[in-house]
Nucleic acid binder design. Structure first.
Lengths: 345, 345
DNA sequence: CTGTTAGCGCGTTCAT
DNA sequence: ATGAACGCGCTAACAG
């Protein structure tokens, strides 16, 4: 019996039943035009022969893959994996598959990936642009090819006509600083990444405007834009410590950087938030563990993912228009984390 | 010019050049049998018409998709996203795409996903089995269908002939406890998840044997197997606190659970590790932030991912045999984290 | 209700 | 070196 048979196709089961392949195809798709008795017969035979539809053939025929591509800088970072979780959840619900790619914030790699993604394996793409995000020409090509595209988090969308889901970074920065001001802080520094990058620039503007609205004069060294990883956080803090001009508080545009800052401060005998308050743009887990004073949190990254996915799927299926969604950042305030409690003992 | 043209195919560029499609196909594949002049001509025309190969058609023709499926319980957990990062890196290097799926530790969902994955969209699968992992029949079907399969982390592999990459959980448990014993702890509890699950069972055995080798008599309530999420950690610790019989140390089989345990202890005025030492199977970030006394760490989860991917790709491309790799867990010892330092002030 | 036919876009003999 | 023809597995007219 084991005739070295490759794979059973609808043709095989048609032959076995002495009927045509199209009848089999229709039966398996539950067409109304097939009698129930035959449907049953065909399904049984299909099971017997252990038939598995070949989705690649279906894709080729229909021109749809029911697959979307997701491009992120790095899967491993909590923010992105949360977004992907949201995307995958929505995709699973609607019977789509998710192809995943990492740009590693490398423009060459990003380009190769986008080129690959434009070769028909996906129906649409959800992407967070690699840094620096000021040149979107590769994405414009996708738009020209009429591949539906949704940005999330990164990339200014003003220049390109696609969907997007983003946090209101300006507002986040502004309200974080406002909060610090209300607590009596005046000298509020800003740690961030390169200001060419849209998100950093917007958070920077929020910070700046909040201070200026208060009539506080900003000095150059108040702004450090090394990067937003933890090591950079330490570095930026170290630079300030060496300079000797300490702030009342710091608005830290990246969550991992905030960790580095805290660590550096503590190793130098400074307490957070007693000596220097920190506010960061934080994601949940870090937030929960070492939450500084408060965090203006990127409204559930999971939700960003499902929003982006919904938009893309709706566009794919009902040609619903792409839109630009801005999520207001939620300001979470915690007077102390369980770690802070230990200090007070 | 914008003739509402769908997509340019090799046929279009053949027609434009007055040659046959097969020549175009060969030229684009850089066949030696095509003169360089023609190749150049064809490539130019291809670029001019903005030709993009249709990978779906290639897949159908060749029977290979150059795509692998990765099934994990949840993308969002650091351990898994790290593994996926490793997989994706290796895949990118070798020009494969990665399809990603989450079982959410739900057997129904897992089954649907595996069924979907067996319909020709992927050449092979890397999976971490959903809990409980004691029934692998769905995976056996994949093996029957000759879809290459590699397990990582979860699932006992004794029963099924596939590749695997796993941490030596028994050894990890044993050496963690050994370490605690050397520090003078005797009464060492064990917090974990259901012992039907392979990894928990193995860590449990390591813990048990280490204690028995020392002649220490284990009591039932020393073992709590609620689950390994943070909330369960708190719950298990609370149960012990209510009972009033406190341990010298706890070997906590899950990293998130360890966090909950620490939190619960601290809220009850107990210090870690001064009053009760904790050892956990931890991943890096948690590790770094609240590392208890020591952690027996799952040797780079990133590396697990690339190992699994390499094995799969080698099998796919050169029919290299699948093997079972066991990684020895690395015992990282840290006397104190930067948070502990604050206590000592 | 069902069978026949024709592609989807490409790679690949088999001729030339 | 190149072209004609076939088929991967399936769906979708078009006929009956």
């Amino acid at each position: 019996m084991t005739e070295k048979s490759k794979k059973t196709s609808i043709y095989d089961i048609a032959k076995a039943l002495g009927i045509s392949a199209s009848t089999v195809s229709r039966a398996l798709q539950n067409h109304t035009s097939i009698s129930d008795s035959r449907k049953e017969l065909i399904r049984e035979k299909a099971k017997e022969l252990n038939y598995r539809p070949n989705l690649v053939a279906v894709n080729l025929k229909t021109g749809k893959t029911r697959t979307i591509g997701v491009l992120v800088p790095n899967i491993n970072r909590f923010f992105f994996s949360s977004v992907i979780e949201g995307v995958e959840d929505e995709a699973y619900r609607r019977n789509y598959d998710v192809l995943i790619c990492q740009s590693k914030d490398n423009k060459d790699r990003e380009e190769k990936i986008l080129s690959n993604l434009s070769q028909g394996k996906v129906d649409g793409i959800i992407a967070s642009v690699a840094y620096p995000d000021n040149n979107l020409s590769m994405y414009e090509e996708l738009v020209d090819m009429e591949i539906p595209l949704v940005f999330f988090d990164r990339a200014s969308v003003d220049a390109i006509q696609v969907g997007s889901v983003r946090v209101d970074d300006y507002k986040g920065g502004y309200s974080a600083v406002k909060h610090l001001l209300l607590q009596g802080n005046k000298k509020i520094f800003h740690f961030s990444g390169p200001l060419e990058v849209t998100v950093w620039r917007n958070r920077y503007r929020g910070w700046r405007d909040a201070l200026e609205d208060e009539g506080i004069e900003i000095q150059d060294h108040w702004v450090q834009t090394e990067s937003t990883d933890k090591e950079s956080g330490r570095k930026m803090m170290r630079a300030i410590l060496e300079r000797g001009d300490l702030p009342d508080a710091i608005f830290c545009a990246g969550d991992y950087a905030a960790l580095g800052v805290i660590q550096e401060l503590r190793e130098n005998g400074l307490r957070v938030p007693e000596d220097i308050a920190i506010v960061g743009f934080a994601n949940e887990p870090i937030d929960e563990m070492v939450r500084p004073t408060i965090s203006s949190i990127c409204q559930s990254s999971f939700r960003m993912g499902s929003l982006a996915a919904k938009m893309l799927f709706d566009n794919l299926e009902t040609k619903e228009a792409m839109v630009n969604i801005t999520i207001a950042p939620e300001l979470k305030v915690r007077e102390s984390s369980f770690f802070d409690r230990r200090v007070k003992k």
